[in-house]
């Protein structure tokens, strides 16, 4: 799959933003006044910035409002609805903290649940794709949730929670990679089922429909990014999980916390790049490619 920068930025940043909103809403951290204001500004910059970035890959962003209508069937629509709901509810909760020094518990918990639901709906957009066997697993929502909640805890300065959740996210990440490497072969879809010609013999793509490139090949048969997959996995593991974990163990300083958050962001961005670049769509089979 083509790793569109807008989608990588969106899922990475907004995951972190909604993760932070989750812990804020849950009341694990109850800042007031200017501290609360700073926390909420950071969370909203991440969450809303990510959402804005995601509209850049649309063909017609001016019609984006229509995407709120089909929540009955579409995970993308559900994501839109729940993200706006989470942002509105958390804005009310945030206003309470900033202006009235009051934590409206019920509003906060509602916002926290909606924030978690938003991350879940994002992950389900990918998980539902039977056409991409690497994504089509319950491990995908687990991974997205673990990363968002671990990152949120890190950003919220909740050392104890982050020290538990970061290793969990790392484990989910490794499990997801290991399963993913076998997923295509185990999906049961191959050139024989794609063409229906398997009962005659071994099928090989002889001539593509055209000599040039096309939308399908650009979007679904993107192989450039897979070249350094193993190196990028190591980078993701080191920066996304190991460095933040180690920095949380040393005595707290704002510099260490900042480095931990930035390392985590970079590592998760590498992991998200691989999430797309390594994903093989079954349509590639028609072109004899993966």
């Amino acid at each position: 799959m083509h790793p569109a920068p807008s989608v990588i930025v969106f899922t990475t940043l907004s995951g972190l933003g909604f993760g932070l909103l989750f812990w804020l809403g849950l009341g694990v951290i109850v800042p007031t006044g200017w501290v609360a204001f700073t926390f909420f500004v950071i969370a909203y910059l991440l969450a809303v910035g990510g959402l804005m970035a995601s509209t850049f890959h649309l063909g017609h962003p001016e019609r984006a409002l229509k995407a709120f209508t089909q929540w009955r069937s579409s995970w993308l629509s559900r994501e839109g609805v729940s993200s706006v709901a989470a942002l509105v509810v958390m804005a009310i909760y945030g206003a309470g903290l900033v202006f009235f020094d009051t934590a409206w518990l019920l509003v906060g918990i509602t916002g926290a649940v909606l924030s978690a639901v938003t991350v879940f709906t994002t992950s389900m957009i990918y998980t539902q794709m039977k056409t991409v066997p690497r994504w089509n697993t319950p491990l995908t929502p687990l991974l997205f949730m673990a990363i968002a909640l671990a990152g949120g805890a890190l950003l919220a300065g909740q050392v104890a929670i982050a020290l538990i959740l970061i290793p969990i996210a790392a484990l989910a990440q490794v499990a997801w990679w290991l399963r993913g490497d076998r997923a295509f072969a185990q999906s049961g879809t191959d050139m024989a089922t794609a063409t229906g010609l398997g009962n005659i013999g071994t099928v090989r793509a002889f001539e593509p429909p055209h000599t040039g490139n096309n939308y399908l090949l650009r979007e679904f048969v993107y192989v450039v990014g897979r070249k350094h997959a193993q190196k990028l996995r190591m980078i993701a593991l080191l920066f996304g999980y190991t460095i933040p974990f180690v920095l949380l163990l040393v005595p707290f300083s704002h510099i260490a916390a900042l480095v931990a958050v930035l390392a985590h962001l970079g590592g998760i961005a590498a992991s998200r790049w691989l999430f797309f670049a390594e994903a093989e769509h079954v349509v590639g089979l028609y072109y004899g490619k993966r």
Binding site: M1, H57, L58, G59, H60, P61, R63, A64, K66, A67, S74, L76, I125, Q128, M129, K130, T131, V132, T189, N214, Y215, L216, E219, F220, H281, V282, V283, Y286
Partner: peptide, 20 residues
């Protein structure tokens, strides 16, 4: 006139039947 060009339908199609 309703399509926002998000491309998700093309992702969901195993046959490559949709092109942006």
């Amino acid at each position: 006139s309703d399509c926002i060009g998000c491309g998700l339908c093309a992702w969901a199609c195993p046959y490559g039947a949709r092109e942006m």
